[in-house]
């Protein structure tokens, strides 16, 4: 149900938020802006180094494994599964926020539960991927892969890959922790006592941001 604000509303006249959102939500947006610039700095430095290199490893060759599939060549299939998991958990998060809007405690608890499962599944996939690359001798400071044209690759590729996906994975992890706290608070009925579910919205903004960053990480590391 949309509500309509008259055009002559004086947003900047004082006495109310000129952004029409509560303080905590606005601050979450500003925090996410600063976090976006942190991730931006990481990804842009990766781009700068890549633009200054004559050649770079081919993601289709590096990321071509899938659990329990042995040596089958399945380029990008596993990472697309990870992307699907994260998009799906973003959807369950919006559904939790939507339930919160209707003060539907059961709905919030149910959808928060699935969001947490999605987050844990993503972390599990990333742990598998890292372990697999580690066993292929890829780690910070070591790069077993050659460039797409067969020339020797520097360790820039693995350094950036592990640093940036690691930083993103850390965000997913802290997002799961936040979601677990929200789940427990919703389950205990804390938000019913408060009378609103705005905390779920703030946790939701953070979780969607994690999904948003993954969209860029996915493009920069697996497609380019």
């Amino acid at each position: 149900m949309a509500h309509v604000v008259p055009a002559n509303q004086k947003w900047w006249a004082g006495g109310r938020s000129p952004f029409n959102v509560e303080y905590g939500k606005l601050m979450m947006w500003y925090f996410l802006m600063s976090d976006a610039f942190t991730f931006g700095a990481f990804l842009i430095s990766y781009g700068t180094i890549r633009f200054s290199s004559n050649a770079w490893p081919d993601p289709n060759k590096v990321f071509s494994s899938f659990p329990f599939m042995g040596h089958a060549n399945l380029p990008l299939v596993f990472v697309s599964l990870m992307t699907f998991i994260l998009i799906m958990s973003s959807v369950t998060m919006v559904l939790a926020v939507a339930s919160g809007h209707n003060n539907d405690r059961k709905g919030v608890v149910k959808w928060m539960f699935w969001t947490i499962i999605g987050g844990l599944a993503f972390l599990g996939c990333q742990a598998w991927e890292w372990t697999h690359l580690y066993h292929q001798n890829a780690w910070w400071g070591r790069n077993p892969f050659t460039n797409y044209d067969g020339t020797m690759a520097s360790t820039n590729f693995t350094n950036f890959f592990f640093t940036i996906t690691g930083f993103h994975g850390f965000h997913v992890f802290s997002g799961v922790v936040i979601n677990v706290i929200m789940f427990i608070m919703a389950w205990r009925g804390d938000f019913d006592r408060k009378g609103h579910y705005l905390m779920i919205e703030k946790a939701g903004l953070y979780w969607h941001f994690v999904d948003l960053v993954w969209v860029f990480v996915f493009t920069c590391f697996y497609l380019f």
Binding site: M1, V4, V91
Partner: peptide, 29 residues
């Protein structure tokens, strides 16, 4: 600029904004 600004974000008092579940799934697809 339009005459009115429409917003679904209604936190004040009794007004309850609701998310459009259909729009969520459309975005997902």
């Amino acid at each position: 600029m339009e005459n009115v600004e429409v917003t679904t974000n209604a936190h004040h008092g009794e007004e309850k904004g609701s998310f459009d579940t259909k729009a969520i799934w459309r975005t997902f697809w």
